[in-house]
Nucleic acid binder design. Structure first.
Lengths: 224, 224
DNA sequence: GATGTCTGACTGTCGGACAATTCTAGACAG
DNA sequence: CTGTCTAGAATTGTCCGACAGTCAGACATC
């Protein structure tokens, strides 16, 4: 009866980390901004030790960097980082795509549903935030095809890093229709069992994404 | 003039984490053993806060687990974990293998050298610890072919997790000659540019590794 | 201009404190 | 004898105050 009842635990450290993370993703803290321990501790009404642990979490998540004796600062995404992250994405997602036939029905269904949701949303709303959310879910589902929780977690971290690095940039602009078509093609190829072709298409898609990301780092705006 | 002068930083937290890690890998701490904060802090002569941070590092590295209000304990590797880790290894390493032709000469050379060192060592020594070390270096170099530092770091974490889970088992036994032949074949295929065949061979090799690992979890001994 | 000194800010680490939670063992009722 | 309850011990989670070490900038000195 009460099958799905779950009381999730939440420590002060986690809540503090989440709070800071939210501020980062909302773009309220520019990359490079130092995260001072005492200031944060006073602002949030928690002890300094707690803030320190929260900052360690953020550093481990890759959204902040620690410089010894100087403190923690919001991560700045360099062009090298974008390249590294792109290569990581390609590796994880194409590994997933290539496992399409061995993947479980649930994993395949997740890809299908994410793609459906994306196209549906693209047709009905102009809310870019929700759209990128749906977009990311597709790519996440592709990694899910590998069947490894760890890789999925890694992909989440990498995506968070990318999103953070772009949070302060102007809103993503570009040809939504083309984006939708890209994913429709990719998933179509997969569901037709043409795995190798899908892998190639994915490669192309991610390479295109990389250049626009690189561009964004340089110019302050994303063009897709 | 002073080009290669470098002073590496080392915090107490890091040293503490390393110290505990060493104990784990040496098998001196069984999986499931609780890591008590006060006990460790007294034993190592550092503050409890410091130990707490060190434990957080170990948890982030996946070699220990934290249960809220109960503390941190040495990780126990389940069969599901072995499966997950194996899938992750396959994904990362075959992604590297498939990028062989696009990889930089240095990255390819790293694979070559690691393989050379391994075969050389296998012929001259019976030191299993050094041998697995050299073995791991090959697989690490394969991930290096992806050109992503992040994936390399992820692979390190996964390997650490596997090694830890097996630290308390009896020494790895098995057909060294066969192992050497496996890697010689794999690297040979790569250097001949037969990438797809190499990927298949890698798949086979890692699948074989997975069954012996699974077996090890069940029986307390590794047979290869 | 290079070097030394001072100072304020901040981190890294320590020790103590206390509430909340979990575990344990003994008391107790049926 | 078995199951339940409860008091107390052990341990974690969090906060606080303290102090040395390090860093960066201002300023003085040679």
């Amino acid at each position: 009866m009460y099958g799905d009842l779950q009381l999730e635990y939440s420590s002060t450290v986690e809540r503090a980390a989440d709070e800071i993370r939210r501020a980062l993703f909302a773009g309220r803290l520019e990359p490079g901004t130092p995260l001072r321990e005492v200031a944060l501790s006073e602002a949030m009404g928690v002890g300094r030790s707690t803030i320190r642990e929260a900052l360690a979490v953020l550093v481990a998540d890759g959204v902040a960097v620690r410089v010894p004796n100087k403190g923690v600062a919001v991560k700045e995404l360099s062009a090298a980082d974008v390249g590294d992250l792109s290569r990581a994405r390609v590796a994880l997602e194409s590994a997933g795509v290539r496992r399409w036939t061995e993947a479980t029905p649930e994993q395949r269904a997740a890809v299908h549903e994410a793609a459906e949701a994306y196209t549906g949303l693209a047709a009905t709303t102009g809310d870019t935030a929700a759209l990128t959310e749906a977009h990311l879910r597709i790519h996440r589902a592709l990694v899910g095809l590998t069947g490894s929780r760890r890789l999925l977690a890694a992909a989440d971290v990498y995506n968070a890093e990318l999103r953070l690095g772009l949070a302060h940039l102007d809103r993503v602009r570009g040809n939504i229709a083309e984006q939708v078509e890209d994913h429709r093609l990719l998933v179509g190829l997969l569901e037709a069992g043409r795995v190798e072709e899908a892998a190639v298409e994915l490669d192309r898609h991610l390479a295109a994404a990389e250049v626009s990301l690189r561009d964004a780092i340089g110019h302050g705006t994303i063009e897709r």
